[in-house]
Computed example of a mutant assay.
Amino acid sequence: MLEVSLRHGFGGFSLDAAFTAAPEGVTALFGPSGCGKSTILKAVAGLLRPDEGRIALDGEVLLDTAQRVMLPPERRHFGLVFQEARLFPHMNVATNLRYGLRRATSGATGPSFDEVLALLGIEPLLDRRPARLSGGERQRVALGRALLMRPRLLLMDEPLAALDAARRAEILPFLARLRDVARLPILYVTHALDEVDALADRLVLMEAGKVLAAGTVEELTARTDLPLATRRDAGVVIPCIIASHEPERGLTRFRFAGGELLAPLQTEPPGTRLRLRLRARDVSIALAPPGDISVQNVLPAKLAAIAPTGSPHEVFLHLALGETTMLARITRDALDRLGLVPGAEVWAMIKSVTFDHARGG
């Protein structure tokens, strides 16, 4: 487990943050630009000495300013991937990758050269130089080089921020596959919520140099007391499994801990685990099952709580569907007209076309 506790000040900015990251999977540092995410990553990498702090990985102390311990970056054996791929321009892809392999710690375990090629789909690129690669291809090669170093921890500083939407969509599945196959802790800095949905197991939510909350993505997206709830795309992330396909209707049936949902037809086979983002503004409420409507998903729910949205004219409804919590964002007028109070039995109506699909763990 990675343990981080830091205090640092520079240029009028003050960082005071503490959190832990799991031994495997992706812990995302999420927040607006300038909130201190990259500063934390640099301190973990050993590239920045904070004013005060302690960092430990699996019980080994890497930094302890009180004890004057500061392990240099090369002895931490971490892999780093930045916004820019930082490949050697005079080397082809194969040589760039083997540079990482040469820097691997003696005796360390990890994927082989051929396994990395297959994992990231970069075997066809081996003879090319970086100038002849697309942005997404360069980032995949940079990932491969970092993996071949057999790191104890992989640090990723907004690796998709410099890519356009098409290249980001291209590389996200490779990052998800890396998370599932590599079996090592990954600290991932981002300000893009779709990357959190697709990749993160745990979320550290930051603002103005402080950790506002830390927990699973499912837990934090269901909280309406956090800045995530102020976004227009606010909503919960729900772990699901593909139950079946109905190609004649163009639909896929998802099962979750609380019922089933229909969404546009997917290509993944039944049994595939996914996470779906369900936006609060796309959930409507009825007091009885409606008939003759186009909405595919009408699910029974209990109104667990009513919370403010920050707007005087709207509220959040916390809806309990078995073990799952969903959010609905409705007007105060609708709340009053329907006479909604906590404990009420309602029907949640969700359009199938509003689901954002993200491969989950």
Score class of each variant (00 low, 15 high):
P300L: 00
L120F: 12
E158G: 01
A85D: 05
R54D: 08
E218S: 06
D201H: 13
V61I: 05
L62P: 01
V93N: 08
P312V: 08
A22F: 09
G322I: 00
Q67T: 08
F113Y: 11
L228K: 02
D356A: 15
R167G: 15
R168P: 06
L163M: 07
S294F: 13
R152I: 05
R7G: 09
R253W: 08
T272S: 09
T324Y: 00
A348I: 00
V44Y: 07
Y99L: 10
A169Q: 14
C240T: 05
A146G: 05
V204N: 01
D233W: 09
P124S: 13
V141T: 13
A200N: 05
L276D: 02
L155I: 04
P312T: 10
L120D: 10
A286T: 12
A213W: 00
P159C: 08
S14P: 10
L101F: 10
E345F: 06
A161P: 00
V116R: 08
L155Q: 04
G36S: 07
L274R: 10
E314K: 12
P269N: 12
P308V: 05
V341C: 15
D225Q: 00
R249K: 13
A142C: 10
L335D: 07
P269F: 13
R183F: 11
M149N: 12
M206E: 02
L172N: 15
A304G: 03
A305P: 01
Q83S: 04
P185M: 06
D282K: 05
G9K: 07
V4G: 04
I242A: 01
T39N: 07
L71I: 10
A234G: 01
P73A: 02
G107H: 09
A280V: 02
G11P: 01
E246R: 11
A358W: 07
V61R: 03
E115R: 08
D180T: 13
E195H: 05
R253Y: 09
T65S: 01
K37F: 01
G144E: 13
L87Q: 02
V69P: 03
D194N: 11
M156P: 09
A304Q: 01
R279V: 13
V211C: 09
P89K: 13
D51R: 13
R202L: 14
P32Y: 04
R329T: 06
D157M: 07
D282S: 08
T105M: 15
F88H: 03
R103I: 07
L327Q: 04
P185Y: 04
V315G: 08
R183V: 10
H245F: 02
E195D: 08
R281F: 14
P73D: 04
T105F: 15
N92I: 11
E260F: 02
V189E: 05
R177V: 15
R329G: 04
I55V: 02
W347D: 10
V217A: 02
P23V: 09
G259H: 00
V81W: 04
P290F: 14
R255N: 03
S112F: 03
P289I: 02
M70Y: 15
L119M: 14
L317A: 03
R76F: 02
L303P: 00
D157F: 06
L265Y: 07
G36K: 07
R253T: 06
G209S: 04
H318Y: 00
A118F: 15
D64E: 01
